[in-house]
């Protein structure tokens, strides 16, 4: 866990990001960063603004103000296609699957494999889908069914498989294990460790403090759209993190943000 050497260029820097929906300041002057091979956990109560913040990075929302830098250079992310071009892959909390098509079609949605004649190469896509799904969920066999016929956990596996299929440099996981059983959750944990070792940066949103302490290098806590503070897990206790989430109180082991009480 020697990521985060101070003079290394961060993979992602989000600085002073704000967005509001109507009158609601969903995210207000929030700053987070992420280094290669690092897992940064985003924590906070329901409605704290975690999903909204990462959706700005993934191109789903357009920020009102603030700067995003990727590898030190200012990035123009206006839509999901732009974000993917920067190597940003996202597992959304809502999974964002097209329910009426099968797993392979979802894995390759927007980036279909084509035959030399320019038609869809469903065979190749299904073969690759079987391979990737085999890594995540070896019991999964329902490749012909539309994903609406799958269980919640199977759907989540499809969403995860899609994110790791395209050599992501930056992976955003918004509660990726919420619907998974213990075995599949452990598999995702292993996956995250493996991705780390390949130098991929991961933003992990989770409500499971235990998981977070197990997987993350740093935590950033949000409350009411603002960042309470950011700190390395080895400098924090679980109780201190809970205090940040619930009371907005930043302990000495963390750097306070604008939302600190």
């Amino acid at each position: 866990m020697n990521a985060h050497v101070k003079d290394q260029t961060p993979l992602v820097e989000m600085e002073e990001i704000s967005i509001s929906f109507g009158g609601v300041h969903a995210v207000e002057r929030a700053s987070v960063d992420l280094y290669p091979g690092e897992v940064v956990a985003l924590l906070g109560h329901n409605g704290a603004g975690k999903s909204t913040l990462i959706k700005i990075l993934s191109g789903a929302y357009r920020r009102d103000s603030g700067v995003i830098r990727i590898r030190g250079e200012e990035a123009a992310i206006h839509n999901p296609r732009d974000a993917k071009a920067y190597g940003i892959e996202t597992i959304y909390q809502t999974l964002a699957l097209a329910d009426n098509v099968d797993a392979a079609a979802n894995l390759y949605l927007g980036r279909e494999l084509l035959t030399p004649w320019g038609t869809l190469d469903d065979g190749a896509m299904e073969a690759k889908a079987r391979e990737v799904m085999g890594r995540l969920n070896p019991r999964f066999q329902r490749f012909k069914d539309p994903v609406k016929a799958l269980s919640g956990g199977q759907r989540q596996s499809v969403a995860i498989a899609r994110a790791i299929l395209f050599n992501a440099r930056i992976l955003i996981m918004d509660e990726p294990t919420a619907a998974l059983g213990p075995q599949e959750t452990a598999q995702v944990g292993e996956l995250i460790k493996q991705l780390k070792s390949e130098g991929i940066g991961v933003f992990l949103i989770s409500h499971d403090i235990h998981d977070v302490f197990h997987l993350a290098d740093r935590v950033t806590v949000m409350k009411n759209g603002q960042v309470v503070g950011t700190g390395r897990v080895e400098n924090l206790t679980k109780d201190e993190v809970l205090g940040m989430i619930i009371l907005g109180k930043c302990p000495p082991g963390a750097t306070p943000g604008p939302g600190a009480a």
Binding site: S58, P80, K84, T90, A96, A98, A105, L109, G110, L120
Partner: peptide, 25 residues
Amino acid sequence: RRTRFGRYVYAIGGNPEAAELAGVN
């Protein structure tokens, strides 16, 4: 059935938001 465009048509019908997030124009 066999073109990218057709695949997008059905995916948009199944979940327009998901298709957009997947990078479909």
